[in-house]
Nucleic acid binder design. Structure first.
Lengths: 205, 205
DNA sequence: CGAACTTTAGACCGAACGTTCTACCCGCTA
DNA sequence: TAGCGGGTAGAACGTTCGGTCTAAAGTTCG
């Protein structure tokens, strides 16, 4: 339905059974095992799809990788938007975002940040995959900067960068060390950061 | 010389011209372009060595990867040992280590932490490469914990983990964002951490 | 019905992968 | 002088890689 020929956004078979199976399978496998390490053969096998079907929906493996990261980006975006919407103050939103990150690290099968992992495999700055990574990180930093500015205008950029740095460290270490300890260290750092940054507000106003 | 037959540590041709060329070439290429992305062909070509020579010195590519990480580990170890030896107080040593990390991030061609990058490509915990990563990180954490304990016995574990988290975040972001800003954020965080942790000493003693 | 589209099944491509092999050369030392 | 180890040179192994192609079956809908 709504696939009428006169529809302005016609000729886009966005969701097809096979395409969706392909993408969700790729998302799982790429995240769990890395990108260069898994071939097209394995993805189409586990998605129960033929090679021809794969190349009908994705021009190349690289395109699938980009789409995979877009998928993860949408997930992250959704989770963070929800965390912000559920709280009235910016400080609470920041803590809720930290909670979301902490929950992710504790989840079984956690394998770090999909974007940091991809960056390790795609160092070429001009590569579409790398640019996807940069774009995601810029969005995340901007989101945090806006929230930090609502807590205290002063040095909100530095505070947001500090938040991102703790997050990156926690995400990187989360699958290389006891996740509980990592989350503990992370949450202490974030709470301290938000508190200190909040005190600036009272001092300057 | 000192390669006599009666020498107790004989029969170890540790350093051979070709082997060293092979290892240093692999170190550069693996760090710059990733591990799965580069083949044996390219390494032996750039090292100007034949395939047979490669397999004379390394049983497999995986062994070369492990040796590569051991090489980087020795470099890190050397730099940090030197930083500690050059300062009389533990607090100064910690700041010197941070300086070393900051200098690395600013260096052209910086491509993040070799171990974090390798971890992204070798998720299997039982894989020798992954275990090499774990071992390196444990050594680093232990080193920092010892120094933190010299600054203040109380909660030195948490302080060391905090240091590592900031380092991981800085190393991860250093090649995805303006390195100067990353280093700035990192150094502020470390200075604050060391200061706060140092104040604990006066409070408890 | 018949046209258009999606998917299946699988053969096929050239290239690159990690690895093994034979054959010969060279410099060392026993 | 003979032997041995490290090196070169290059062919070859079987497998997997990403990607293309053909032919046939199933679905949807005008």
């Amino acid at each position: 339905m709504t696939r009428g020929t006169t529809d302005t956004r016609a000729s886009e078979p966005r969701t097809s059974e096979a395409r969706q199976r392909l993408l969700s399978t790729a998302t799982q496998i790429f995240y769990a095992d890395g990108i260069h390490a898994v071939g097209v053969d394995r993805i189409i096998a586990e998605a129960k799809v033929t090679r021809a079907t794969f190349y009908r929906h994705f021009p190349s493996k690289d395109d699938l990788v980009v789409t995979y990261l877009q998928e993860v980006h949408q997930m992250d975006r959704g989770a963070i938007t929800a965390a912000i919407a559920a709280h009235s103050t910016a400080a609470d939103s920041l803590l809720a975002i930290a909670d979301t990150i902490a929950a992710g690290i504790k989840r079984p099968g956690f394998r770090g940040c999909a974007f940091l992992n991809a960056a390790a495999e795609f160092p070429d700055v001009n590569h579409p995959v790398h640019q996807q990574i940069i774009a995601h990180r810029q969005w995340f930093l901007d989101t945090l900067t806006t929230l930090m500015a609502q807590v205290a205008e002063d040095s909100s950029d530095a505070a947001a960068r500090h938040f991102v740095m703790l997050r990156d460290g926690a995400m990187a270490a989360g699958c290389l060390f006891d996740p509980d300890l990592v989350v503990d260290t992370f949450m202490r750092g974030i709470e301290g950061l938000v508190r200190i940054h909040g005190q600036r507000e009272q001092a300057t106003q």
